[in-house]
Simulated assay, not measured.
Amino acid sequence: MLDREEYIEQAYLFRLFAERIEGGIAAQEALIAIAQEVLATTKLPLAIGYLASELKLVGTLSTAMARLPHYFNAFQTFVMQQAEEEGGRFDMRTALAMLEREASHRTEGATPQSLFFYRFECLARNRLDYAHGLTAVADDGLFNDDWKQWIHTVSRQVGLIDLADLVFIRSPEYWRLGRKASGLAGRAAPAPDRVILFGEKEGRIAGANRGKDPLFFFAALKRQLNYPSVPKPTPITPSAESPALLVRRIEGLDMRVKLLEEESRGSIDLSRFDPKKFLQPHGE
Rank of each mutant, 00 (worst) to 15 (best):
A124G: 01
F116R: 01
H132N: 07
L46D: 08
H105V: 00
R67D: 00
A47Y: 13
A83P: 04
R125L: 15
T135E: 15
D129Y: 05
E86H: 08
A131I: 05
A74S: 10
G49M: 12
D146N: 14
T107P: 13
A64C: 01
T107D: 01
F143V: 07
S53C: 02
I151E: 06
F143T: 04
R67K: 13
E85I: 12
T107H: 09
A124M: 09
I48H: 07
D129C: 00
L134R: 03
L57V: 11
M65Q: 05
D91Y: 04
G133E: 07
A83L: 08
Y130Q: 01
I48E: 00
E85S: 09
Q76T: 05
A64N: 02
F78P: 05
L123I: 14
D146M: 03
D140M: 11
Q149I: 11
L128I: 06
Q149P: 00
L68T: 04
D91V: 15
Q81G: 10
F90D: 02
R89N: 13
A52F: 11
L51F: 15
D91C: 04
L123V: 02
A66H: 05
E108G: 07
M65G: 03
L46K: 15
F143D: 11
D129N: 10
P69Q: 00
S62Y: 14
R106K: 14
F75H: 06
T135R: 12
V79F: 08
R106N: 12
F78D: 06
G88T: 06
F116T: 11
K43R: 15
L55Q: 13
L46G: 03
L115C: 08
D145H: 07
T111G: 08
G109P: 10
C122A: 15
V154W: 02
T94M: 09
E100C: 06
I151W: 05
L57N: 15
D129M: 02
A138M: 00
G109A: 10
T77H: 05
R156L: 11
A124Q: 12
A64L: 01
G141L: 10
Y50A: 14
P69I: 00
L57C: 00
A47M: 11
A83C: 08
Q76D: 14
T111D: 02
F117V: 04
F75S: 09
N144A: 03
H152F: 03
R101M: 13
D146H: 14
E121L: 13
A66K: 07
D139C: 03
A136H: 11
F143M: 12
L61C: 08
R101G: 00
L68D: 07
W147T: 11
T94L: 06
S62T: 03
R119S: 12
W150H: 09
G133L: 01
F120D: 03
R101P: 07
K43F: 11
R93A: 10
L134G: 02
S62M: 01
T63S: 08
